[in-house]
Amino acid sequence: MQALETLVEQVKGCRLCASCFEHEPRPVLQVHPNASILIAGQAPGRKVHETGVPFDDASGDRLRLWLGLSKDEFYNPELVAILPMGFCFPGTGKSGDLPPRPECAKAWRSDLMAFLPNLKVKLLVGQYALNWHMKGQVRKNLTETVKAWRDFQADGYFPMPHPSPRNNIWLSKNQWFEAEVVPELQTQVRDCIN
């Protein structure tokens, strides 16, 4: 546990991308070796950057609903590890937040994942998480990958759209996601924590 705590302190002190931001870096993550659920997201948004609490926004409200978890369960690191592809808010672009900085995953992801031997359910939220974790298994686009979710169950993967309100149009066009995928996700999450 000491080695993980040391690594987390190094991540929280990381300044690899400091020159790329107009703001001070603030790495946000949640990790514990007992965690059985992984949330691999994109990168913190502006609100999360300000609070330092992962998914402390409308996206988090929807994600907790999809998982069927209370806030207390969600923020229990012994149950849920939250490791975005980029630990810092990347800034805002023309159509929303910028992509996660690639330096982050290269520098820290493999080392952190090595401390998570008990993962049973791995939520891969968005294209960056899918590409890193599913190396070569991703379909032609996010929708097709999410539609093929059953193909990835042996590895515990749940490819997911981002729970952001910006994805309301995607969710309305793909109602099968909340009708088919979410109930199975909730069942597997409950199995992990009961």
Score class of each variant (00 low, 15 high):
190 R>M: 15
35 A>C: 09
55 F>K: 07
48 V>Q: 15
56 D>P: 11
96 G>N: 04
148 A>G: 05
147 K>A: 14
116 L>M: 07
159 P>N: 05
124 L>W: 00
5 E>D: 12
114 A>S: 13
163 P>G: 04
55 F>E: 05
135 K>W: 03
9 E>K: 14
3 A>T: 12
144 E>S: 12
88 C>G: 01
110 S>I: 14
102 P>N: 01
108 W>M: 00
71 K>S: 12
191 D>N: 15
163 P>K: 06
114 A>Q: 08
123 L>F: 04
97 D>Q: 12
171 L>I: 15
179 A>L: 06
112 L>H: 02
75 Y>S: 12
150 R>W: 09
90 P>W: 11
122 K>Q: 15
63 L>W: 12
106 K>Y: 13
147 K>M: 14
132 W>H: 06
109 R>T: 07
58 A>W: 08
48 V>W: 10
18 A>Q: 10
15 R>I: 02
133 H>L: 05
194 N>K: 15
63 L>Q: 08
67 L>H: 03
141 N>A: 09
27 P>W: 06
115 F>I: 06
123 L>E: 09
31 V>M: 12
129 A>C: 08
49 H>Y: 14
118 N>M: 04
112 L>N: 01
161 P>R: 11
113 M>N: 11
188 Q>E: 15
78 E>R: 07
191 D>R: 15
19 S>P: 00
82 I>A: 14
86 G>Y: 01
78 E>M: 13
166 R>K: 13
35 A>L: 08
142 L>I: 14
39 I>T: 02
75 Y>T: 04
134 M>K: 00
55 F>H: 07
38 L>I: 09
56 D>L: 12
96 G>W: 03
21 F>W: 11
16 L>A: 04
34 N>K: 15
29 L>E: 07
103 E>H: 02
130 L>I: 03
152 F>I: 04
131 N>W: 11
50 E>Q: 14
29 L>V: 08
187 T>K: 14
171 L>E: 02
4 L>R: 01
45 G>S: 11
46 R>P: 01
85 M>A: 10
39 I>W: 00
96 G>H: 05
19 S>Q: 13
162 H>R: 09
82 I>D: 05
144 E>L: 12
40 A>I: 04
161 P>I: 08
187 T>V: 15
81 A>I: 06
180 E>Q: 09
83 L>S: 03
155 D>N: 11
62 R>P: 06
64 R>D: 07
58 A>P: 02
42 Q>R: 05
153 Q>A: 14
120 K>E: 15
22 E>W: 08
42 Q>W: 02
14 C>D: 03
91 G>V: 06
28 V>D: 04
22 E>Y: 03
50 E>S: 09
68 G>K: 00
25 P>D: 10
105 A>V: 11
34 N>Q: 10
149 W>A: 06
133 H>T: 05
40 A>M: 08
155 D>W: 14
64 R>K: 13
174 N>Y: 05
157 Y>L: 05
193 I>W: 04
131 N>M: 10
131 N>P: 01
6 T>G: 11
106 K>Q: 13
26 R>L: 11
52 G>K: 07
82 I>P: 00
